[in-house]
Design a protein around this nucleic acid. Structure first.
Lengths: 208, 208, 208, 208
DNA sequence: AATGAATGAGGGTTCATTCAT
DNA sequence: TATGAATGAACCCTCATTCAT
């Protein structure tokens, strides 16, 4: 407005504190990805985020609280990763097979580009078994994913692309399990994963 | 009986020390199953095995060594669990579908009877990502399992039970992934797991 | 009223800052009464006074300074508590026994109505043993109190109310000790305290 | 038994561990006496006792537990201090006045020789107001003391040494309060304390 | 072979105080 | 004047590991 330049920029949508909060969550996320929960140290996280441990506790009263925040972030990252084409309604103008392949691509993306997300996800999945407070967040991720795949299978059955005797719910489990296996717990390598996806598609589309 | 009193009984096949080693491994196994690696404490393990922490270190110089021993034990338990009918050659007199169903039954067995094995397995699978020394053991378990399933699928294709266009290697991955999903990381419940197995069988047996 | 708007109202006798200082002292006083010095936290005091910790440090550069101010306040409260009949000269128109009973009543008042003052007093008395800077304030309280009681005893001796062989200085110590015991460190209960006062009066007034 | 001299002495009544426990309690006691509860640091206590903090926790699971042990020790020290003539029954062959003077001497002893005990006692008395678990120990000390003094006064009344109208219970309170005042909270000095004791004796023995 | 005792190296959390705004 | 943010310095407690016996 005035011609005298303002030293301070227009106050950003993200105030300073929010930025550091985010930095801490990101640092904790990376730490969990690299060292697992076993190796998660508040001091390390703080240093990674460029601040003092006490500052960490200024933003998160307890380590537990930080972990919870990371869980939320994980859920967000997962949604983002599975919907890279923002602004487009995925289900409308695509065939079931196309959508299925997008799922494959998403899994590939996580595997190749963001193995950290997969690692953190697995850590949380394992921890949720003992930390009941974490279960809702994890369950929500799984439920959303499963619903999406189920919808795809259902659509494929309706329009004749997939085998008519397909049970969408059971089939979704098999598909999810296979995609999840990309997260390397079973030590699967990339070409093997690709072949598994192809095989899966073959089974789904084949007429009985 | 004899008048010369023998302080020690006839040395058993298992000497005393071996017994205590085993007790420690078992205790550590149970501890990991219940609390995860995060909650694994040498003192707890020792107490569980009915001895002092120092004694634990007498048998295992380091916590790491104990964990390695548990990994070996895990592999043994897994083989045992998947071959409950000892003394019989599984592959000889059974059809491919029958063998496949045995695999399903094995997974069911782990899920229902020995959830601890599944839990420990998952813990190790996750840890192997960071502990390279653990990878060979885990890889061996997976390789053995995969080979078995691959053989079953291959047999089914040869004798016409399974679809002729089945890729045994890729198919084995899908089957393994589905069975592994029983280990609850995806939060699958028992009926859903059963339906997934049935669906899998349907896909494998159907003619293209 | 005037067209030149005054942002600030007419400066009150107590300026704003003095008010907040007082609020902080009051809050610290209450905090010490409830939690003792062990539980005294600057953050709690500030919150209690309705402001930020940093603001506390604006008024009191250090926690120690705040504590000193509370000591001053304690001395003032003690004087007030022992002279509820303001504007009257206590010693003029009262007999020694009447004055003694007022002392008893004062002790009773502190015990029943203001146990917080007694608690804080005790805390400071204890702390003064280690904090030399506190000793003058505490000593002044005691000296004033002792002088008053001594005067009373002396008057009683002179006018024949109290026993003629009474040593006012030594007697004052006994009286003070008994009254101080109301501050519950010895776990004395109210009826016991009353009986002790009565006994004391009996001893003082009896002829040898 | 054998003529070959034993390197190790006869195992002492106090095993090694008990010795260190005691050392820790003693160190904590001294620390409280010097710095108060406010300044009580586990590291300092451990260093004072010549060991590591972790060793302290080997003997006392928590700081609280150590404090409790110090309370027990305080009670023992108090009994000991008040009964220096071991092996003699104090009440039998002494007159009431003689016994009263022993009480005075005890108070003098604590004041002069063991001011630390008085300091710690006061610290605990103050802390007991907030730590209910401490109250029984403190109450027991007080009750035992009070009972003893009450007995002395009662005996004096019976044998005519003390004034016949003396109320032993109320009188005991006054005596205890006076003796307790030796613990310097009121800033009394030694000669003043002596005079107060003498005065007290005068009041007790005088005929009404 | 077995253990009670001992410890160094942290680990999470707290707190009085400072600083930029 | 007032405060949110930031931090160094502890503090209590834990744990794998070592050692003397």
């Amino acid at each position: 407005m005035s011609k005298a330049p303002r030293a301070k920029p227009v106050p950003a949508a993200k105030p300073r504190g929010e930025e550091r909060r985010r930095a801490l969550i990101e640092a904790a996320f990376a730490s969990i990805a690299e060292e697992g929960f076993e190796g998660l140290r508040t001091r390390d996280v703080a240093k990674r985020a460029g601040m003092n441990v006490a500052t960490l506790h200024h933003y998160f009263p307890t380590k537990e609280a930080l972990v919870r925040a990371v869980a939320i972030r994980l859920a967000a990252l997962h949604s983002l990763g599975r919907a890279p084409a923002v602004g487009r309604d995925r289900s409308d103008d695509l065939t079931a097979v196309e959508e299925l392949r997008i799922e494959f691509a998403d899994a590939r993306y996580f595997r190749v580009e963001r193995p950290d997300i997969a690692a953190v996800w697995t850590e949380f999945a394992l921890r949720a078994a003992r930390d009941k407070g974490l279960q809702p967040v994890l369950a929500r991720i799984n439920a959303a994913w499963q619903a999406d795949i189920e919808r795809i299978l259902d659509k494929g059955v309706r329009d004749g692309t997939f085998r008519p005797d397909l049970d969408p719910k059971a089939g979704a489990h098999v598909v999810m399990a296979t995609l999840w296996s990309a997260n390397s717990l079973l030590g699967i390598d990339t070409p093997a994963f690709e072949r598994a996806c192809a095989e899966l598609e073959k089974w789904l589309t084949a007429a009985p």
